[in-house]
Design a protein around this nucleic acid. Structure first.
Length: 215
DNA sequence: GCCAAGATTCCCT
DNA sequence: GGGAATCTTGGCC
């Protein structure tokens, strides 16, 4: 007998407007099945990216080889590589073709923490294991081999998502997205669980200054 | 073809 | 608080 919070979320969950999916994802449980065992993560912080109309989205400038998964059906993982060394994990949602997605920014490891500590040696506390999008991907051993993975395929899949316990409205907080500048900064499309210790600190968008160039 | 910037993290000061 | 590490992409020459 399965407990209700272990029930996989159906694809219809993701086939909704991105802001609705993003807020509803908080408190849900992402399951990563590895050779060494399952890792379970309770989502505590996410960001919404609204497809081709969103200047902050990878899909803003149209379909490319990298972002092609975002233009596909909802309920799939979009994994990208950034800053030359990190991976970030998104879940595609909204109507197919709209190219909307939710960036998974942070979470609390519910199960399998011993498996994640080996990859997150710099984490001084368990609450830091998945505190930040690249840390989350590292902790769950997510790389581009999982790009396009179906998270609605069932518990045996490399990535799946379960119902967990959705949060109540009084615990929902929102603010500007981290690291997004320009017009995209005005939307409060970062969502997190109030007071949760695994939520990453907010940092405003700051363009990197040029390096190794003399005047 | 080349350059700058990026949905970041870590380490040093 | 600030800079480095490192690679992919898109813009521009």
């Amino acid at each position: 007998m399965e407990s209700p919070d272990r029930v996989p979320l159906p694809r219809e969950f993701f086939d909704r407007p991105v802001l609705e999916v993003a807020t509803d994802l908080l408190g849900r449980v992402l399951v990563r099945s590895t050779d060494e065992g399952p890792i379970e993560l309770r989502l505590t912080e996410v960001e919404a990216y609204a497809g081709a109309v969103d200047p902050g989205s990878h899909a803003f400038r149209g379909r490319t080889a990298r972002n092609a998964v975002m233009f596909g059906p909802p309920g799939h993982a979009y994994v990208y590589f950034t800053y030359g060394m990190w991976h970030c994990l998104n879940l595609v949602c909204g109507p197919e073709g709209e190219a909307s997605g939710v960036l998974l920014r942070a979470g609390e490891i519910l199960h399998g923490a011993e498996l994640t500590r080996k990859r997150r040696l710099s984490a001084r506390h368990d609450r830091e294991l998945a505190k930040g999008p690249a840390r989350l991907a590292t902790a769950l051993d997510v790389d581009r081999s999982l790009n396009g993975a179906d998270v609605c395929a069932g518990p045996g899949a490399p990535l799946s998502i379960q119902a967990g316990t959705p949060i109540t409205d009084d615990r929902l907080r929102s603010g500007p997205r981290t690291g997004v500048g320009g017009d995209g900064a005005s939307h409060p499309w970062r969502f997190w669980i109030d007071g949760d210790p695994s939520v990453s600190p907010y940092r405003a968008h700051a363009p990197r200054r040029r390096t190794s160039r003399r005047t």
